[in-house]
Design a protein around this nucleic acid. Structure first.
Length: 921
RNA sequence: GGGCGUUUAGCUCAGUUGGUAGAGCAUCGCCCUUACAAGGCGAGGGUCACAAGUUCGAGUCUUGUAGCGCCCACCA
């Protein structure tokens, strides 16, 4: 083995090794009683791996690998999403570079182009997943537009339609005028921006009076069909029912009364434009108002009214209309005003409420059982609190607009005849049967919202609607691991559709992960230039390449230079190659239930160091075995074990127990910390050091050899789900050494916790020995004694029980504390001039012989005594309190009493020592 | 406006049913002790945001206040 751990060298080979040996196949372990399944949230096929993916996939991989090694038949289902709008936009942009629009080449050709593009670069993210070590079953990889999945989509659509849960209707929807498609409520981002409030006076018919309305969208007045006031508003009560002559268009519209109007806001009069505002639409329906659409699908003024504004963009029209109103004397004033602007999540274009024919899912009937499933704990949110967010949304859910006026996606299985009759069916042939042979049918040109097919993912990938073996084996799946940002988009819809079509929940647990932020707690985004690419953490990247990457395609040079400055500051030397394992361990360790996770390179470095530690510990074991020419096959496991052997084995059982407990509760962070601590501090710092002495003794040698390897082997198995590459590499090193058959650590079975291996005696003994050693080390450090110098040691006041402990562990203590010897002094014997440290009742004495600085020691003793006295006071106070004695549990009271006794004794001894030393000087 | 999260060492975070506050990083000593300097050994560092309450006892439970942050819905 090389002296230093080099992830590059070992990681590249194993992704291929695992895949080509079918290690992750879901066909394996088919006889097992247990099945375990996780659905990978399918990333956009257009995408590349970002930190969020890497984080969540690490968690899924740990869960999957863990259950696989426990013997379950395991499926981690991979795949990608066709991501309708996102993908279409990318290909459109590419065409635009050649000055071609999608209309130039037509729908069919355009879709071919997209498939071509998918063929070419759709594999980016899956190859990056391989770099990360994701143990998905690649044989089962799906794409949301696979024919198998499309069948499921059509079946669901047809059934929902037949049951009246999908309908088509002319409604006001969110319209993206750039994409020229409807989008769902969730795809609209509302944000406050600076704007204006316009006050316009509307003249009242047959009167000199006017009424002043306030609006942020004056151009929509072209479509006004009423003005509303509050029925209780005394100012306007006499105007209700009168008519208004709308400026510019000169249309006559009524003044109506509605509670919706807030008397205290603006003038208390609201212009009502049912075709272009959601609230106005509701009022329009309620009052049976005319609906006048004034926009084209690009949000330009249409020709519904004869006006000079036809063809003007909405913002140009706004300016023009304000000008005209001013000229004609209708404009009262314009004030700056904060307004909430809805923008499309893909295009950032301002979304327009727009009347069109669309398809909707009637959600309320589906939501009810989906709410109950969580309420009845059939589905569990982890952390539990997210269920509130879920309920909040589900209980106020609106119908879901599922049609999109784009080309890339699942075509809606609906056909129309000349008269506009609708035929919904699985296929044209079926539709034709409904319509009659000779009727000419045209398919609906819309496609479905991408999330419609995503909603079926947990069962469509398993072969539904066929009754497949996969389906009965793996459904419902065990856990969904995802971010809170798609609870509404995806999670809730999977639950609704799962319950509706499989009569069963799609998953038992929903583990909602936190969001990875940069070191300053900022969300990572391209525009902020603070993105870290997980692959760069694995392979490393130079500062120049990183600068290039972060500022590529930046339009504004000012922002680019700012980003450069920040980046240079944060990554002076770029990013060093940490390897996939270090990155994975980092994610695992950071996966607490927080919402935001600040990502810091220092942490990755720490876990890279851990990998190096593990590497070198393994190297030590290998070297020791080679020195003795030991073969694994003649390693005797039926050997007598030393105290230290029993101790590390006992500790190991406890760690395994904790690991299982943490994992069952998705506390992968705690699991990681536990393993880190055990490997580094128990195994490396203590056991390996013990072993150096034990291997030199023929009575303990064989037991130590067996334990060194057996514990290391279990460590590798325990760590494998977190850091699969390095553990596999180390395992392979032993396999070669063993000259056994070449097999993967990934197929090794997790050993159960064995309670018979718990050993209180050894834990007590080693703890005692450790305290002894720590005591001596403390003195050595305080007294500045060179670590290589061996020193003599006396002990006094030792009882029988502890004398036994001393005998059993003497060698280890002498070795690790670097002592010459340990001599026992009789109680009454006069001790040499020494430095003292207390262990329970025992005085450990290190003779001075010139090494001591008396003043220093006096100072140290005084400090120590002071500390103990504070503790003593606290305890005395506590025990003086009758209520404490009478109400606290007995063991707590006893403990306090005991501690007080020990504290008093210690103080006494230290004072004695202090006096002694004082006399010397 | 409604809902949620968060506040613990210089920094990033753990803290299980209330019982003397922990880790990693950083800092400061000493050390190339033959697996590891990407290391070893040791040390220092906290009024657990604030206030009140429950309790013998509160980082932990209750209520309130403040800061930071997120989500949803919004007055035209």
């Amino acid at each position: 083995m090389d002296k230093t751990y080099d992830p590059k060298q070992i990681e590249s080979k194993f992704s291929f090794f695992w895949e080509s040996n079918n290690i992750f196949s879901s066909e394996l372990n088919s006889n097992s009683d247990e099945a375990y399944c996780i659905m990978l949230p399918p990333p956009n096929v257009t995408g590349s791996l970002h930190m969020g993916h890497a984080f969540q996939q690490t968690i899924m991989d740990i869960l999957t690998r863990y259950h696989r090694s426990k013997g379950a038949q395991t499926l981690w289902q991979p795949g990608t999403d066709h991501a309708g709008i996102a993908t279409q936009m990318i290909v459109e942009r590419q065409l635009a570079k050649q000055n071609i629009t999608k209309h130039d080449i037509g729908r069919k050709k355009f879709i071919e182009k997209i498939w071509e593009w998918k063929q070419q670069s759709g594999g980016t993210i899956t190859s990056q997943m391989r770099r990360l070590g994701a143990s998905v079953d690649w044989e089962k990889e799906c794409f949301t537009m696979d024919s198998k999945l499309s069948i499921a989509v059509r079946k669901v659509f047809v059934q929902l339609y037949n049951e009246g849960l999908i309908y088509r209707g002319k409604r006001l929807v969110n319209w993206d005028p750039v994409l020229k498609t409807a989008v769902s409520d969730l795809e609209v981002i509302n944000a406050e921006e600076n704007g204006f409030m316009c006050y316009i006076s509307y003249p009242i018919c047959d009167s000199d009076e006017t009424i002043v309305v306030s609006t942020t969208r004056p151009e929509t007045m072209l479509g006004d069909t009423a003005v509303a006031v509050n029925p209780n508003d005394k100012r306007y009560i006499n105007l209700i029912g009168k008519k208004i002559k709308l400026p510019i268009t000169n249309r006559i519209i009524p003044i109506i009364a509605d509670d919706y109007v807030d008397m205290d806001f603006g003038t208390g009069c609201v212009k009502i434009t049912p075709a272009h505002d959601f609230n106005d639409y509701k009022i329009g329906k309620k009052h049976n108002l005319k609906i006048i659409n004034i926009f084209t699908e690009e949000a330009k003024i249409n020709n519904s009214l004869k006006s000079k504004y036809i063809g003007l963009d909405r913002f140009d029209a706004r300016k023009k209309i304000i000008e005209d109103l001013k000229q004609q004397g209708f404009l009262v004033k314009i004030e700056p005003h904060k307004i909430v602007i809805p923008r499309g999540d893909r295009t950032n274009a301002i979304i327009e409420p727009y009347i069109t024919n669309q398809w909707f899912v009637k959600v309320a009937p589906l939501a009810k059982p989906a709410i109950d499933a969580v309420k009845n704990n059939k589905i569990r949110f982890v952390p539990e609190n997210w269920s509130k967010t879920y309920f909040n949304w589900m209980e106020n859910i609106e119908d879901w607009c599922i049609s999109r006026q784009i080309w890339w996606g699942h075509e809606i299985p609906a056909w129309y005849d000349d008269k506009g009759n609708i035929f919904v069916a699985d296929s044209l042939i079926e539709a034709q049967k409904q319509a009659g042979k000779d009727v000419k049918l045209t398919q609906d040109s819309d496609v479905l919202d991408t999330w419609f097919s995503s909603a079926l993912w947990p069962f469509s990938t398993l072969g539904w609607p066929d009754k497949t073996e996969q389906m009965s084996r793996f459904y419902p799946t065990n856990v969904l691991v995802t971010g809170f940002d798609i609870i509404f988009f995806w999670v809730s819809r999977m639950i609704m559709f799962g319950l509706k079509f499989t009569n069963n929940i799609p998953f038992k647990d929903i583990y909602i992960t936190g969001l990875i932020k940069d070191g300053n707690g900022q969300k990572m985004s391209k525009s902020k230039g603070n993105i870290i690419d997980p692959i760069d953490l694995i392979d490393g990247i130079s500062l120049n390449d990183l600068l290039e990457k972060r500022t590529a395609n930046m339009m504004q040079p000012k922002i680019a230079s700012k980003i450069k400055k920040q980046t240079k500051n944060e990554f002076k030397n770029g990013i060093s190659p940490f390897g996939a394992d270090a990155l994975r361990f980092t994610f695992a360790a950071l996966s607490s239930f927080r919402r935001d996770i600040k990502f810091d390179l220092k942490i990755v470095e720490g876990y890279r160091n851990f990998c190096n530690k593990l590497w070198n510990a393994s190297r030590f074991v290998l070297i020791k075995f080679k020195e003795d020419n030991i073969k694994l096959e003649n390693l005797n496991n039926n050997v007598k074990l030393s105290m230290a052997d029993k101790w590390i084995i006992s500790r190991l059982q406890k760690v395994k127990l904790k690991t299982e407990e943490y994992l069952a509760n998705y506390r992968i962070d705690l699991m990681s910390h536990k393993l880190y601590e055990f490997v580094w501090h128990d195994y490396c710092d203590w056991y390996l050091e013990f072993s150096k002495s034990l291997l030199n003794d023929n009575t303990t040698k064989k037991g130590t050899q067996a334990t060194l390897l057996n514990v290391l082997n279990e460590i590798l198995i325990l760590l494998h789900p977190i850091i699969p590459f390095i553990t596999e590499e180390i395992y392979q090193q032993y396999q070669n050494f063993n000259s056994n058959k070449y097999q993967s650590l990934s197929s090794q079975t997790y050993l159960k916790v064995d309670n018979n291996l718990l050993c209180k005696e050894s834990e007590d003994n080693i703890k005692w020995a450790q305290d002894f050693i720590l005591g001596v080390r403390k003195i050595r450090s305080k007294m500045n004694i060179n670590p290589s110098k061996q020193i003599p040691c006396f002990i006094q006041n030792i009882n029988n029980n502890e004398q036994q402990k001393l005998e059993k562990n003497k060698k280890l203590i002498i070795k690790l504390a670097r002592l010459k010897n340990i001599s026992i002094l009789e109680i009454n014997a006069v001790a040499p001039e020494s430095v003292i440290v207390l262990l329970n009742d025992i005085k450990i004495l290190i003779p001075l012989e010139g090494i001591i600085d008396k003043d220093k020691e006096i100072e140290r003793l005084k400090k120590e005594i002071e500390k103990l006295k504070i503790q003593e006071n606290k305890l005395i106070q506590k025990l003086d309190n009758d209520k404490f004695i009478s109400s606290a549990p007995e063991n707590i009271v006893n403990e306090a009493k005991q501690t007080l006794i020990f504290t008093k004794k210690d103080i006494e001894k230290l004072i004695q020592q202090l006096n002694k030393i004082n006399k010397l000087s």
